[in-house]
Simulated assay, not measured.
Amino acid sequence: MNDLQRAFQYLNDPFNWTRRGGILDLLHDHLVVSAVAVLAAMVVALPLGVVLGRARRGSGAVVVLSNVSRAIPTLALLTVFAVTPVGFGDRATMIALAVFAIPPILTNTFVGFRGVDADVREAARAMGMSGGQLLRRVEAPLAAPLVLTGIRTAAVQVVATATLAALVGGSGLGRLINLGFGQRDYGVMYAGAFLVAALALLTELLLVVASWAVTPGQRRLPFRPVTRASVERGQPEPTASGVPL
């Protein structure tokens, strides 16, 4: 029996899913760590991106902050946290992953709000909208596709990177990979890697559907080709780059 067969056998055993500390428990912990990290990054990045994007200034600061955050390896942060009061475990992983998730959310939020047409803003103000109404009813819907793309990118990256929690005493699906590698049981290691990859793909799919659902304007199913009939019904025809005319 080769390693891939052992991985399939491991995943096909209900006991490995339901036992204490099994796959379901590790999956729950993995999702909690990832969700908290992304939400923490959103709390920091979204307001900052909205303020700077609406003011249309601070692009240099956003670029510098994003580049600096990307340049810091998550594993290096976890190593630094080990000698600070943060210590090991899931809390250190959440903080490190939140830092890792800030750049794509901040950058896309800034670009999305900065890209709202000035004429649209002026037209909304001419209609008597207040600053809050302009933000909620005009700018936020128009910037939503880019903002959600940043959140989706950050979420997928965090889900995939949360496996590092196992290296600092944390929980999550990374424990299967760490356990399999440590015991030279590559079937278990492959099973853990498969679960992490499947979870990242599922996260991507769910957030693509959510982005499609909240995007304003006429919609068509993602990846569905545009037909002549849909164009005649008034749906926008995409250009060669995929952006509607």
Score class of each variant (00 low, 15 high):
L148T: 00
G22V: 13
V196S: 11
V159G: 04
E122G: 13
V33M: 05
T93W: 02
P104T: 02
R19A: 13
S130V: 05
V83R: 13
Y190N: 15
A144H: 03
V51E: 05
T84K: 12
I151P: 00
A200G: 14
V83P: 06
V36D: 02
T203N: 05
D13Q: 15
A213W: 14
V116L: 04
G132Q: 14
L202P: 02
Y190L: 15
E237C: 08
V80S: 11
L52T: 02
R175D: 11
W212V: 04
R184K: 14
A200F: 10
W17N: 11
R219C: 01
A140Q: 02
L179D: 15
G150M: 01
R70M: 15
L142Y: 03
Y190R: 15
S69I: 04
P225E: 11
P14D: 11
I105T: 03
A92K: 09
A37R: 02
V209P: 09
F110E: 00
N16K: 14
A7F: 00
V64Q: 09
L206P: 05
A229P: 02
T227S: 07
E232R: 10
T203L: 09
P14N: 14
V209N: 13
A98V: 01
R54K: 12
A197Y: 14
F88E: 07
L134G: 06
L142V: 09
A143H: 00
V168C: 08
A37T: 03
G217M: 07
S59N: 14
S130D: 07
A101L: 04
V62F: 06
G112R: 00
I102F: 09
R233L: 11
L65E: 11
E139M: 07
R91N: 10
V63Q: 15
Q235Y: 03
V33N: 00
L221F: 06
G131T: 10
V188N: 05
D90W: 12
N2D: 11
M127G: 08
R228L: 06
R19N: 11
R220A: 04
V83E: 09
P216R: 05
E232G: 01
Y10D: 06
R228F: 02
P222D: 05
E139F: 10
A123G: 15
D90Y: 11
V111W: 00
F113Q: 02
G22Y: 06
A162R: 00
A37Y: 01
